[in-house]
Amino acid sequence: MAKRAWIQAAAALLQNGYLRGFGDGSLYRGPGKQFCVPGLNCYSCPGALAACPIGALQAMAANVRFGLSFYVYGFLLLTGLIGGRLVCGFLCPFGFIQELLYRVPLGKWRRPLPPVLRRLKYAVLLVLVIGIPTALTLTGGISFPAFCQWLCPAGTLEAGIPVALANERIRGALGWLFVWKLSVLLGLLYVAMRLFRPFCRVLCPLGAIYALLNRLSVVHIRTESHCQGCGACRRVCGMEAADPDDPECIRCGRCVTCCPTGARRWAWRRGGAPVRSGEN
């Protein structure tokens, strides 16, 4: 879907427009940084013009004054209610990078992903993003952003590497943690060439949040009654989603394009009508 790729590219550039930062490894410090972007974009990326919502959640959990961030959760809930994982499909730079990698002509893994792996991202959300930072703050320990520090490959790719390349002082501080993060990133980038958007399917805590709201989102993909159950939509779905209200659906719109009868359509959700799945 070429048009979506243009939107994804534009979104990635817009969220990382502080080009000067790439030159000298500095960070943008303007007022944009008090806002969150809806996708996963590390705010320590030299180009980042706004903050990462997942990073912000952990940072606020570490802050004794605030703890729970009403501001960030409110923003995420609002965004999710508008489009569910539409953000994943159109605006997330890291999702875009994985999709580009999938276009590399390497053999694709055909076996379906075990369901337990799909649920792992909820554990990542509950333990690394919310659990550990909050528990440490509550028990008076030194809280830290566990997801950012131990796992997030977007941070390594967008922040760690560019900053290390551009800022020689930071290079002096690299240690074993960086080796681990780099391995995680490289492993993921490789898998992304064989499997469609692996991070989004298995590990992304932000995707997990939006996934929960797929069934309620105002913008969604509807299956009309003249669907003939050919199953083309299911076969073409990179996320192996059962239907567009499935938590796995990233609203990329591929099924809309592929439906031979035009039964799949983008729509404003009317009332609470359940979505008919694409097969009889």
């Binding site: 960070l27 943008y28 410090r29 007022p31 940084k33 008090q34 806002f35 969150c36 590390c42 705010y43 320590s44 980042a48 706004a50 903050a51 990462c52 990073g55 912000a56 940072a59 606020m60 802050n63 004054r65 605030f66 961030s69 009403f70 501001y71 960030v72 959760y73 409110g74 830290f144 952003p145 950012c148 520090q149 131990w150 997030c152 941070g155 390594t156 922040a159 760690g160 900053v163 290390a164 930071i170 501080a173 690299l174 240690g175 074993w176 943690l177 960086f178 681990w180 993060k181």
Partner: peptide, 26 residues
């Protein structure tokens, strides 16, 4: 409510200074 509590300023703080370990250095 979050806005009224001044949370954006706190978000901004963490977003403008790199804490190396937080992004996986060290």
């Amino acid at each position: 409510f979050g806005l009224s509590r001044g949370e954006p300023a706190a978000v901004m703080q963490k977003a403008v200074l790199l804490c190396l370990e937080c992004i996986g250095f060290g």
